[in-house]
Design a protein around this nucleic acid. Structure first.
Lengths: 337, 337
DNA sequence: GGCAAGACTGTGAACGTTAACAATGCCCTC
DNA sequence: GAGGGCATTGTTAACGTTCACAGTCTTGCC
């Protein structure tokens, strides 16, 4: 910068002013400075800038297993939205989720000087870690439950599960079974709640959920158990599309036809779902909207530069009807008599 | 830091020495400093540190559509390896890939002061952008072709395609059709090359590849065309698992049984593949190894602090036999007579 | 007891930028 | 034509570290 100043015949401060679009720089001076910058190939040093302004224009993202479609999509849209707003994104992907791990990640990022943090915290234990935050650090939780005083952006899991369950009941099924996600996950919990609510409100029996861990393999295991009950079970709501794939596979292997003998509904709408056999009826989550909203909320907090009222944004899910769910083959009410 | 020094009754420099594990600090002094740090909750400022040392301990990653399984897994393992080595990772995900976009991303990251950059550049156009790098910036390309003088880490696509094609020939198929990835992608190109090599070497006819774009939808379109040729076509090598899913779907719809009437082999081994109907025979890419290797190479460059000989690491792929490929239903050579 | 060597600690100046304030020159008004 | 105000520029001091060097204190040896 000193070199630029010398070449342009001005002071370093004037160069700084040109760079920051300050008022009150004569057009001719500005041109001379810009020419010098161009000539010397000067690039301003963000680190020095961050030191004095106390703003790094970088955000942190803490996430869990960004290999999964949901977190990957969320992180992707967060990054896009952040960059569009002129911020960079530093990512910490946690292999295992526990309170200490999340807290460490938050501390690391705070040390690194990020201006704010988005925590993709879909587990109860991760959400708890938000109680002990680095002081004064703007934070937004994604899918993070509604405890504490951290702003939260999330998809309405309960509403999504309702859509799925209601659809199956509307098709004339007597009740709906459920293959759930791991119990520590808030999303799994929300989907169970929505499913249970609808069954209870309709006065239907509520079967014991089959536990899965989001993986196709666990869905496969659940599917085998369901296949053994084919005839008694005519409809299943599976907590995500990957497990639904495993369920479909197990049913196919056991000769249970979908949807004729058993209807299956998933959750997420991953790009593959449309091409399962049969194409999967599911509930779409708008991860793009979640990412964009979380950045909006976070930037508001950063720019306010002081504590702000906590915000809770909820993104509605969308039902996607395909071929894996059809009317019950039995007249309604014929079962369990 | 000045506060800590005051509380501990030493100079700021001694505090710095304690923080950096310098020799020649008396045990008692060190204890006093540590106590003061603890008492004040002092945290060292990475930005100031970066300014004077000229090392941010941050790496940049440029990638394309981190929603796809391959890039997502690669970026994940890069992040893990980097953090294990004490580095943070800033990510730039590109929506569209072109030379200018990659160059801009590299410039942004360089401005931001990263110590090195990993470019996940599976397209020809992205690889070309590596010709005009920010001067003196250590860079490693992942899946980036072997031009220029940038170090490259990649999975051996040609070998993987060979494994797939040879397997199908070994099963007695007369020839193997191919559903390819988008033409700009180096991976797509490598898979075509391996496939073509094996067919040519075996003296088999080389059918025109069907073009896809990695998506299940494009695989579905290709699958319908293949189904129309069932009888003539008995074996297909599909350039990734997602497209293979689309192919399977189309074949199922058209009543073509897999593998009895047509064998299908994919590429990638995504977690879902094992649960397709039928479970997909495929070629596994070890994305974890790719990520780890790329960080190793990059850190070597950074620590050498000067130009280093270019390295080209190749990670071998692994064949995974499942149920979607089986011996030809026709005696070998019975076709095209 | 003096002296050299090594252990330990402190002082001042960087690093490259922005903030705060001061200084200059010009125009306009009275 | 003197003075107030504004536009433009320069000067100095931060920001929070580490580096280079200069001390001071101990220890051991002659």
């Amino acid at each position: 910068m000193a070199d630029v100043a010398r070449v342009a015949g001005v002071s370093h401060q004037t160069v700084s002013r040109v760079l920051n679009d300050h008022l009150n720089v004569r057009a001719e001076t500005r041109a001379r400075v810009l020419a010098a910058i161009d000539q010397l190939g000067y690039r301003r040093n963000f680190v020095a800038r961050a030191l004095v302004t106390r703003h790094s224009r970088r955000l942190g993202v803490v996430s869990f297993d960004t290999t999964l479609y949901g977190p990957a999509s969320t992180v992707y849209s967060i990054e896009q939205a952040a960059r569009a707003a002129g911020y960079f994104v530093s990512i910490v992907s946690l292999r295992t989720i526990d309170r200490a791990g999340v807290r460490d990640a938050l501390d690391y990022l705070a040390d690194q000087g990020v201006d704010g943090i988005v925590v993709v915290a879909p587990q109860r234990s991760a959400a708890q870690a938000l109680d002990d935050l680095p002081a004064g650090m703007p934070v937004v939780a994604v899918e993070g439950g509604h405890a504490g005083d951290v702003s939260v952006v999330s998809v309405d899991q309960v509403a999504g599960a309702r859509l799925a369950t209601e659809h199956l009941l509307d098709l004339g099924h007597d009740t709906v079974w459920h293959v759930s996600g791991p119990s520590d996950w808030l999303e799994a919990e929300g989907r169970i709640a929505g499913w249970r609510d609808v069954l209870t409100a309709a006065g239907r029996p509520v079967p014991e959920p089959l536990n899965g861990d989001w993986s196709p393999r666990s869905g496969y295991a659940a599917g085998r158990r369901l296949a053994a009950m084919a005839g008694d079970v005519t409809a299943v709501f599976v907590a995500n599309d990957q497990m639904a794939l495993g369920v479909l596979r197990a049913l196919t292997e056991e000769g249970v036809r979908v949807p004729e003998q058993m209807s299956v509904v998933g959750f997420d709408d991953i790009p593959e779902s449309e091409f399962f056999s049969p194409p999967l009826t599911t509930v779409r989550q708008d991860f793009g909207a979640v990412g964009r909203c979380s950045i909006e909320v976070l930037l508001r907090q950063i720019e306010a530069d002081g504590p702000l009222a906590r915000e809770c944004l909820v993104v509605p899910p969308e039902f996607v009807a395909r071929a894996s769910a059809s009317p019950s083959c039995r007249p309604h009410g014929a079962v369990r008599n």
